[in-house]
Amino acid sequence: MKKIVMMIAALLIVLAGCGNKNEDNGKLKVYTTVFPFKSMTEQIGGEHVDVESIYPNGIDIHTFEPTQKDTLNVAKGDLFIYSSDELDPVAAKIAKTVKNEKTLPVAKAIKENQLLEHDHDHEEGHDHEHEHEHEHAESAHDPHVWLDPVMDKAFAEQIKDRLVKEDPDHKADYEKNYAKLAKDIVGIDQQLKDITKNPKRDTVYISHDSLGYLANRYGFKQEGVSGMNNDEPSQREIVSLINQINELNAPYILYEQNIPSKITDIIKEKTETESLPFHNMAVLTDNDMKDKNVSYQSIMKKNIESLDKALNE
């Protein structure tokens, strides 16, 4: 068994050492994790890149485990973009099979005091009868950094710089495309500042704790039905959340595109709240794919509309 593992590791190293650019079309082959990294890379790279996420549509990334084929594909590519080894232990496993010069952990430079700690409240409150059902690496910090537009602008710049390094012949295109994207991200930041300047209420209720960085950046609170890694709440926590929503007369609860909604449905029914969509952008759904122009910006525009309603209506 040990020999087989060593042979696979050797094969991955060989594949990772292949020359740059897709031999069929001359484009850089880039793999990413979450959708914002994919979308930003596509926009900056334009016609010079071929970008693919390692995640299938609609999955819950908190329970995703890559296959050997996933790892081989990334190893054969030219670049692998993810947050960081600390924030994304699953991506870190894949990155270990790829030469360092082929990886780009865009959040690696984020300072410790800028990262939000993992919220263990749900884990401490729920029954632990299922805690050993599967072993899945979890970050000690909130991994949802890609929802913060200020951080995204810095991530986009790193992606641009890396594409320029890999493909200097098209530097002008990458610089131009990045400038347009950066302008859009600044606009998103301003819209979020506008809707959170004098909100009617200060708390947003959502299907799981994905809003931490947005809440921290723009001064509101989040209350997730399930925890940061989609761990289920206890009965006591569900009752407490229902009472809180009823006491505050909160009119809305946000539903995410890839998070199971059974418990959220119960809370919605008991509180007579209305549902609003919120796209955490970890992955796209099959329905998202029907829009050929779906992008980081288009999804954030809809998210801002939902947050505005949740905070101000």
Rank of each mutant, 00 (worst) to 15 (best):
K270H: 04
L79S: 09
N230E: 10
I304W: 10
D119R: 02
K38S: 14
K38W: 14
K38G: 10
T273Y: 00
L311S: 10
V30G: 01
M1D: 08
V283E: 01
H126F: 09
K171H: 02
H122N: 00
L284T: 12
I54V: 14
F35E: 05
V34R: 04
H279C: 03
E117C: 08
G227K: 07
T97L: 10
G125V: 03
D78W: 14
A179K: 12
N303H: 11
A182N: 07
K262W: 11
S295P: 06
L116H: 14
V204S: 07
P66K: 08
P199A: 02
N287M: 06
Q190D: 14
D167C: 02
Q235W: 04
P277C: 00
N243T: 02
P168H: 06
H279F: 10
V14D: 09
G219T: 02
N113M: 14
D127Q: 11
D167A: 03
I159E: 04
A215F: 09
V74Y: 10
K93V: 05
E117P: 07
K96D: 09
M228P: 06
E175L: 04
K69P: 06
H279A: 00
D286R: 09
Q114H: 11
E237Q: 15
A182I: 10
K176V: 05
I185D: 06
V164L: 08
Y252K: 02
K2G: 12
N246F: 00
E166L: 14
E135F: 11
G19T: 08
S84V: 13
H144V: 11
E23C: 01
D24S: 06
A10K: 07
V150D: 13
I59P: 01
M289L: 15
P36I: 00
H141L: 12
F80I: 04
Y178V: 09
E42V: 13
E133T: 09
D184M: 01
Y252L: 01
L214Q: 02
F37R: 08
H126W: 09
L163M: 01
F64K: 09
K200S: 12
P36W: 01
A9H: 09
I81A: 10
E101K: 13
P56M: 10
G46F: 00
K292R: 08
K38Y: 14
I299S: 01
S83R: 07
D161K: 08
M289Q: 15
V74T: 01
I44S: 03
D127A: 11
G17H: 05
H48F: 10
G58I: 04
A16I: 01
S210P: 04
I304N: 12
A137H: 06
N293C: 03
Q68E: 15
G45R: 11
S53H: 12
V90M: 15
M40P: 07
K193H: 03
E313W: 03
T196K: 00
N198I: 00
D167V: 01
A92T: 07
Q235G: 12
A179L: 09
I266C: 00
Q68H: 11
A182T: 05
K290E: 03
A156Y: 04
M228R: 06
I238G: 03
E117N: 15
D60P: 03
V164T: 10
T196Y: 02
L241M: 05
M228V: 15
A182F: 01
N113T: 13
F64E: 12
